[in-house]
Design a binder for these strands. Structure first.
Lengths: 107, 107
DNA sequence: AATTATTATCGTAATATTGCGATATAACAA
DNA sequence: TTGTTATATCGCAATATTACGATAATAATT
């Protein structure tokens, strides 16, 4: 089928899984790391840097934006993409809460 | 294409993305939470509890096992699945390292 | 206005994932 | 041995994801 049955899970589970899923691609990890390394806004050099087509990079950026991890601001003829630190910390906290509350040892 | 170009990323990026990807499905989140809630090994009640077919649950368990998050031990005619705490903590640390080292603020 | 540069979107092909029924396997019970 | 129960695997259909070329859109430059 290929369709995830989101209706049988609660909102928290779906949201958490969605965060994980967006981060679950090496290109998106690489994009975030590159922005971080530059400590600056990124433009089209991402395409050269990563080695995927411009359309593909644009698509990955869109997904990162969709969970609020990136914020983009127009700057001349290009767009400045930066990590949204507040959202970044918020998501990190969510993931840690999941890890900390989901811990058992029975074996 | 649908094929992720893993060759253009380094091992750390691919591995990190792989962890995130495995956790990026609500059924797998729900499975982990259920095991945790029970604070015990789980057997086939997972199928009833979650509401997916037995084959589907088995598949998700296999993926969680593949990154070492679950360890299974045979117990009579069923199998006891538990969270591997050491691996759990290890992965949590990896993710946190990623979050902590990938932080910038330029906008 | 025309050109150039940068990013977004569309359409499409290839591969991956999700989910399930059917079946196989394994261990215990009668 | 036969039956029962629990889990794994196979094979398939449906949907999702990844990637890219082509093209559109936008803004600066000439």
């Amino acid at each position: 089928m290929g369709i995830t049955k989101t209706q049988i899970f609660d909102q928290q589970q779906n949201e958490l899984a969605h965060f994980f899923k967006i981060l679950g691609h090496p290109a998106r990890i690489a994009i975030l790391q590159y922005i971080s390394k530059q400590n600056a806004c990124i433009c089209n050099d991402l395409v050269e840097e990563i080695g995927l087509a411009q359309a593909t990079i644009s698509q990955h950026l869109k997904e990162l934006k969709s969970i609020g991890l990136l914020k983009g601001e127009i700057e001349g003829k290009s767009i400045c993409y930066c990590i949204d630190i507040d959202r970044w910390n918020e998501i990190q906290e969510n993931l840690n809460t999941f890890f900390n509350t989901t811990k058992t040892n029975c074996c």
